[in-house]
Simulated scan of single mutants.
Amino acid sequence: MAVTENVSSCSLSAMWDWSHLSLSGTPPAVTLLDAATDLLVLERNFPGALEMCERGLQIISTEPGERRNNQVKASLVVIAIQALAEMERWREVLPWMLQYYQSPQEIPHNIMEMCLLLYSRVKQPHVMLELSKDWLRGQVTRPSLQYKRVAELHLLNILLPLGHFSEAEDLAVDPRVFTKQQQEAALTAVREEKRRQEEKEAAQIESEQQNQRTLSPSGNVRGKYLQVARLLYRALSAAVTWTRRIPLRNTLLALLLLSVIILRLDPASPASQDPISRLLLLLRQIFGSLFRNR
């Protein structure tokens, strides 16, 4: 089941549909269509092409409905959709198009094909889900080659990426859409996509579990670091609080006495050896007890 993957091919086929219309005259809408095509294809002036299409559609909306007007209208819409897509304004395509087609059944098949390909390419198939389903339901009583092409795109580009496998299987075995050989190919495509998505989901679950197992030890280490940091913070806070409670006068007096003892005693004198030794011993005991507690 070959499916055209190029959106531009739809616009080229649509331009071929209206190319013979100028032979019978050049009404304003057809003239604007010619100008929009030149702006799109030759000058690559996408905003200008969109403007020309909108002007042509305004003219057609004021004229009585004719088959030729419907063809020109469809071609203008196709050119405008192409211009919007080229400007990366694909989000505006569907609401813009629905201004000119009030119901899904009014939308020509080539425009449906173009929209299905566009939203599939930008990874937004859900946008077209309900519209294409409504379009197919409206055309099911008179299936044609164009209906089959839209149904095939709906199956491959909308239902399968969204994981609607039951609907895809029902459509794949519909004899009004596919021949026996095509049904087998469609069912194979459905099974392959279903298997691929199941494998992808299983791989994602395994990856998440592996990440949890890998991060678990580091999480424990991080918890230990946080616990130690909290203890240090509490110890420092307690030390600061204790220091603030001591009067500044007493602290200065203790430092003064300590300096007098150390500076006034001659280290070479035997009389100073005992006090200095006791002071050093006291400092060693204090530091030793601190490190042993840690």
Rank of each mutant, 00 (worst) to 15 (best):
S24G: 14
S24V: 14
T26S: 15
T31S: 15
L39G: 05
L42D: 15
L42V: 11
N45L: 10
N45D: 15
F46P: 05
A49F: 07
L50E: 14
R55E: 15
G56R: 00
G56D: 12
L57Q: 05
I59Y: 07
E63H: 00
P64A: 13
G65F: 02
G65W: 01
R67Y: 12
R68T: 15
N69I: 10
Q71N: 14
K73D: 13
K73G: 09
S75T: 14
S75F: 02
L76M: 12
L76A: 09
I79Q: 12
I79T: 10
Q82T: 13
Q82V: 04
L84V: 07
A85S: 11
A85P: 00
E88W: 00
R89Q: 13
Y101T: 09
Y101P: 04
Q102N: 13
E106Q: 11
I107K: 00
H109M: 10
I111K: 00
M112Y: 02
E113M: 06
M114S: 10
Y119H: 01
Y119F: 14
K123F: 13
Q124T: 08
V127P: 00
L129T: 03
L131N: 04
K133I: 09
K133H: 13
D134L: 09
D134K: 01
W135G: 01
W135I: 06
L136W: 02
T141S: 14
T141Y: 02
R142L: 11
P143I: 04
Y147E: 12
R149D: 15
V150K: 02
L153N: 12
N157W: 12
